[in-house]
C-alpha cells in the first residue's frame, strides 16, 4: 500500500520537478518564443524549437514507416509460417534484440551504417541514418507485441475461417490481422513513444545540426538529442528552456502510452 503510493508519487514528483524547472521558461520568455524566435541560439537568448521538433517528428515517423510493415510481417511469420522451432527461436532473437543497449545500436550506426550512407556533400550522419537506427531499435517492440496480439486471436476463429475454405494468406490477412488490430495498434503506439524518447543512438548518427529536416541526407538534431548535448553547459535561462522541452516530450509520451492502453481496450485487468 505504502509502496504503491510511493511508486505512484514518483510520476508526480517527476512531473512536478520538470514543471518547477521549466517554470521560468514558460513564463518569462514564454511558450510562443519557441515558435517565433528566428533561430536556436540559446546563448544569445534565441529559442526557436520548431526545427528540432520537426526532426523528432521526422525520425519517429520515418522509423515507424520502416519498422511497422517489417515487424508485422515477421509476426505473421511467427504465427502462420514458421515451423514451431523456428518461431520460438525467432521470438528469442527478438527478445535479445530488445535488450541490446541503445549505445550499441548507436556505435554500430556510427562505425558501420554512417560510412555506408556517406555520399556526395554529406558525411552519412543525417536524418536517414537516424531513421534506420531508430527503426531497428523499435522493430522488436512492434514485432513482439504484434506476435502477442496474433497469438491471442482465438483458435476457433481461425478454424472457422479454414472451414470456409479460406487459404492461409486470407486467414492471416483478412481474419487474424483485423481481429488482432487493437493489440497491434497498441504495440505501434508503444514503439512510437520509444522512438520519441530515444536519445543516445540518435545523437550518435544524426549529425546534430539544428535545421529543418527537408531532405533525408540533412544532418538533424532531435529534441532528446538536444537535451543530451546542451544540459551540461546550460546557464539558468537556457536550462529552463531545456526542461520545458523535456516536459513536452514527456507529455507526448504520456499521450501515446495512454492512447495505447485505450486502443488495447484493457484499461484495467
Amino acid at each position: 500500500m505504502t509502496a504503491a503510493a510511493i511508486s505512484t508519487v514518483t510520476l508526480f514528483v517527476v512531473v512536478l520537478f520538470l514543471i518547477r524547472e521549466a517554470f521560468p521558461a514558460l513564463t518569462s520568455p514564454g511558450l510562443h518564443r519557441f515558435l517565433t524566435d528566428e533561430s536556436w541560439h540559446p546563448l544569445s537568448n534565441r529559442f526557436r524549437m520548431t526545427p528540432m521538433a520537426a526532426a523528432t517528428a521526422a525520425t519517429t515517423l520515418g522509423a515507424l514507416v520502416l519498422a511497422v510493415p517489417v515487424g508485422v510481417a515477421s509476426a505473421v511469420f511467427v504465427r502462420f509460417y514458421a515451423p514451431a522451432a523456428a518461431g520460438r527461436a525467432f521470438r528469442g532473437l527478438l527478445e535479445l534484440m530488445a535488450g541490446i543497449p541503445s549505445v550499441v545500436f548507436g556505435l554500430w550506426g556510427l562505425l558501420v551504417l554512417v560510412p555506408l550512407l556517406a555520399g556526395h556533400g554529406h558525411s552519412g550522419q543525417h536524418l536517414l541514418a537516424a531513421i534506420c537506427v531508430l527503426a531497428l531499435m523499435i522493430l522488436p517492440v512492434v514485432a513482439l507485441s504484434a506476435a502477442a496480439a496474433l497469438n491471442a486471436v482465438p483458435e476457433s476463429l481461425l478454424v472457422a475461417a479454414a472451414a470456409l475454405g479460406l487459404s492461409r494468406p486470407s486467414v492471416a490477412l483478412r481474419i487474424a490481422l483485423p481481429a488482432a488490430r487493437r493489440g497491434i495498434a497498441a504495440g505501434i503506439l508503444l514503439a512510437l513513444s520509444r522512438a520519441l524518447g530515444e536519445t543516445m543512438a540518435v545523437v550518435m548518427v544524426a549529425g546534430n545540426v539544428v535545421q529543418f529536416p527537408d531532405s533525408l541526407t540533412r544532418p538533424v538534431r532531435t529534441l532528446t538529442g538536444n537535451l543530451a548535448l546542451e544540459l551540461g553547459y546550460a546557464g539558468p535561462a537556457h536550462r529552463s528552456v531545456l526542461f520545458a522541452s523535456a516536459l513536452m516530450l514527456m507529455l507526448a509520451a504520456a499521450v501515446s502510452v495512454s492512447l495505447a492502453r485505450v486502443v488495447e481496450g484493457r484499461p484495467d485487468e
Binding site: 476457433s156 472457422a160 475454405g165 487459404s167 486470407s170 483485423p178
Partner: peptide, 30 residues
C-alpha cells in the same frame, strides 16, 4: 476448394469480429 464445397458449422457460433457484410463476402471474394 474441398472446404468450399463441404461446409461446416460448429457448436459455438464463430462470427469473425468484422462487419456482417464482411463475414459473408469474405468467402465469396476468396
Amino acid at each position: 476448394e474441398l472446404r468450399r464445397r463441404v461446409g461446416m458449422i460448429f457448436q459455438k457460433p464463430v462470427p469473425f469480429p468484422l462487419s456482417i457484410r464482411a463475414n459473408i463476402q469474405l468467402g465469396l471474394k476468396e
